[in-house]
Design a protein around this nucleic acid. Sequence first.
RNA 1: GGAGAGGUGGCUGAGUGGUCGAAAGCGAACGACUCGAAAUCGUUUAAUAGGAAACUGUUCGUGGGUUCGAAUCCCACCCUCUCCGCCA
Length: 424
Amino acid sequence: MLDQKLIRENPTYVEENLSLRGKVFQISEIHNLTLEKKEIDIKISDLQSESKKISKLIGQEMCNPKNINSLEINDLKYKGNQFKIKITELEEKKRLLDKQLLEEISRLPNFPSKETPFGKDENNNIQIKTWGEPLKEDNLKTHWEIGEYLDLFDSLKSTKISKSRFITLKGNGARLERALINFMLDEHTKNGYLELMPPALINSESLRGSGQLPKFSNESFKCANDDLWLSPTAEVPITAFHKNEIIDPQVLPIKYVAYSPCFRREAGSYGKDTKGLIRLHQFNKVELYWFCDPNKSLEAHKVLTEDAESILKKLNLPYRQVDICTGDLGFSASRTFDLEVWLPSSKTYREISSCSNCLDFQARRSAIRTKIDKKTSYIHTLNGSGLAIGRTMAAILENGQQSDGSVKIPDVLVPYFGSNFIKK
RNA sequence: GGAGAGGUGGCUGAGUGGUCGAAAGCGAACGACUCGAAAUCGUUUAAUAGGAAACUGUUCGUGGGUUCGAAUCCCACCCUCUCCGCCA
């Protein structure tokens, strides 16, 4: 969430920064609401101050039992009542204003950082670097063909269980998924991350806190009878884990790694990636998350991204790093580096991790602060996949495919998976 | 799901209508003593909004209500704990 004071005092600055995202943001209405709110706040505060003085006076007079029903006291009570009527009236107005203002401001995205490349959409993203040698042979099999040949998963039967875009992993497929989760968790915990396994059902307040609500209610699954949603990413419960806290700066940065299933409605992506493991309503992910000193998040962003990259390198999967442009930037992010893994069957790089610095955007929504030199300030939050498991499996299957139809397992994974190859 | 108990500052815990934003203790910070430290003594120590500041407002689980005045009374909700039932 953006700072309300900033909106009130410098609406032009806010509009300019938001408009970097490629569409025009008009915040004059919100700006007016902030002014109106402030005016009412001052009025209420003054009236309350007067009213409190009267109450105290009555209290003092009442100490003397003689006074209890005196004219003077009754007069004061009447005066107090008049204040109360005015205050109640104004508070009613204020309540409506607050609600409206919070709703409107919650729908404004974060400012892109100054370093974020300017651009309209994903075509303007900038490739920062590539790593590894992409396989560019023709006639390579897709991972779903490989999966079918080696009997690793079944999407058709899964529609009987749920519907399309769900998958059931089988045999070596399930085993490989499990191996990847364990491998990634081990690597990150060795590297100083604390492992969390958060709830998969989360409340609306938590979704609001990390930016998924109120604007993107369409993108998550909601439980019908409870104020609970299926978590779209561990980023949400981890942010909420420290909601309403003031964190001792000495313990910063707090670095978490969490395995979690992720659930997304994928509304609006009909027809895209209908086969295989790329786009599912449910997938597994190992997430990296930092709660960070607000002065150190730029460096932290680099380190977090490198930590995610290290997994791709160890798995020997060719990838590239992309600097996401202002028009393609996620709602809560100020800057994002995507890691995209090479999928040789389609000769493209596909997103496998999105490493974002949200600055204080989520921390303000979730009231997560620290106290530096007696001054409380919002901490910075950063998140990134380390990595998405299903897409990693797709990449391993496609990049490790052999001419005899088997798949070579990356060396680091062998102790977890238990064999060098998946064969028929 | 049923019955009961309870939610107060960083923590423990007092407070059942009137200068209560809240006793006391612990913890923490600073100072004194000391060569230094421990112990001791003294002072300080919640968040948040507005303000340059003085100061003013709000906050005792959350939201309403009663009252001139609510941590305290009333209503609703949320959460925690104990017992019973069910259950991996």
